[in-house]
């Protein structure tokens, strides 16, 4: 399906959607948002691109195999738990690191963020794996 309107709109929408997905990812934990919902929005961006254009150019834009994204995501999510294990906590016992960043105020980083980014990548990977497989052929 080649629609000029959709293609033109998609060009600008993809950027907005991806930005929004990262916003949702970082907003998570303390406020509504998080890796899963962010990942779905991110996957929607790529899916929209695949509908407006075609699958090969979507794969090129993605730049990485969906399988590889799943692997990296799982490694980050699972690895977040292993860090806690190494620190003598139970699996997924979350560790926090608080710091003051000039200009931003206090920020706290935790293994939870690593887990969430992992989930984000897995969700994008799985969704795209299925959508691109279905759309090909």
């Amino acid at each position: 399906m080649k629609s000029l309107i959709l293609q033109t709109a998609t060009r600008s929408l993809v950027a907005v959607l991806l930005l929004f997905s990262i916003f949702l990812l970082l907003r998570g934990h303390d406020e509504p948002g998080g890796g899963f919902i962010g990942g779905l929005v991110g996957a929607a961006a790529f899916a929209l691109y695949a509908i407006a254009f075609d699958v090969p150019s979507t794969r090129r834009m993605l730049g990485i195999r969906p399988q590889m994204m799943i692997a990296i995501g799982l490694a980050m999510a699972g690895g977040a738990g292993v860090i806690s294990l190494l620190a003598g906590e139970p699996y997924f016992g979350h560790l926090w690191y608080h710091t003051d960043l000039p200009g931003f105020g206090e920020i706290h980083l935790g293994t939870f963020l690593l887990f969430d980014i992992g989930v984000f990548l897995v969700v994008i990977g799985v969704t795209l794996l299925v959508i691109l497989t279905l759309q090909e052929e």
Partner: peptide, 20 residues
């Protein structure tokens, strides 16, 4: 719901493969 989503996605791919 998340799990259902994953399973459904797989089922759709399977249904398509079976049809082919």
């Amino acid at each position: 719901i998340v799990i259902g989503f994953g399973v459904l996605a797989f089922t759709l791919v399977l249904v398509k493969r079976v049809y082919q």
